[in-house]
Design a protein around this nucleic acid. Structure first.
Lengths: 146, 146
DNA sequence: TACGATTATTTATCGCACGATTTAAGTAGA
DNA sequence: TCTACTTAAATCGTGCGATAAATAATCGTA
């Protein structure tokens, strides 16, 4: 029982699963205030970093399919944070642009990072290192997914 | 922009989010074969480790509410993997027990850990260490969640 | 121009997750 | 003993995220 192999993998996957949930719960009250869900927040962050991306471009960064993004983006549009317009150069593409409300939201979200850092009970450098390791794991897993 | 605080926290949360997704995608084809979802798999693992737990007990280990678990457990019951029975000692509690099919499923799941380890492109000890760090982060986050 | 590839949307399906409330059962106190 | 509090699950309502598969529109090119 001590060497039961079902334990190890469970724990690395479960660690990610449960840490992600814990993160979610921590974010929830703050995101509620912004009227955003967690994945929506991630989309907004990518747009705050670079406005005017295509659906595919956002999906590439967040590893999400367009069939997931389209409805999510429509909700963001309905909420008044973004605008969806067909690209002039390539009409297959849809450009996502922040509205003024979407831009303004960034200020309201500015305090979040400090809260997360504070709640994590560790240092920035530690967190950065851990982040890098988790990303390395993600890349290995993605690479080896059929 | 280089010191934009919105980047850091995004990345630690996003790292967890995306690594969890990558894990999910890797598991998916294997779990499909077992007719399990990822959370259902986690429940099964806890039962393989200790049969006859209560709903609350499972929830405590997986950090899930009864309102999430009850329907999930009913699906597992409908699939024939578990059995739900009221406890004799305390009739408020419901005991979850593996059926013979549920026990048998463990054998079919036995190969999964090796696949995950293989796909992670790292060693067991590295993975174990990373796991511990992620769990430490989770605990800090939970502790500091209102 | 016709064909294959790309981009996004649509459709259908499903499960997870949470909050709030409810029901039932146990527990403790006046 | 009767009441009030607590606990354990289940229920209800709601909504989002995720995927697969099919469709539509556009683009690039042979």
């Amino acid at each position: 029982m001590k060497d039961d192999p079902l334990k190890l993998d469970t724990f690395i996957c479960f660690a990610l699963y449960s840490a992600n949930h814990a993160m979610n719960r921590l974010y929830k009250p703050m995101l509620d205030e912004l009227n955003l869900t967690y994945p929506q927040y991630l989309v907004m962050v990518t747009l705050w970093e670079e406005d005017g991306q295509t659906v595919g471009g956002i999906g590439e960064k967040l590893f999400l399919e367009s069939s997931t993004l389209t409805p999510l983006l429509k909700r963001l549009e309905a909420a008044g944070f973004i605008q969806r317009t067909r690209s002039k150069e390539d009409e297959r593409q849809v450009l996502i642009r922040l509205t003024s409300e979407g831009v303004a939201l960034k200020k309201k979200a500015a305090g979040i990072p400090a809260c997360i850092l504070d709640a994590s009970d560790t240092t920035v450098s530690e967190l950065t290192r851990l982040k890098a390791e988790v990303i390395r794991l993600r890349e290995a897993l993605s690479k080896n997914t059929a």
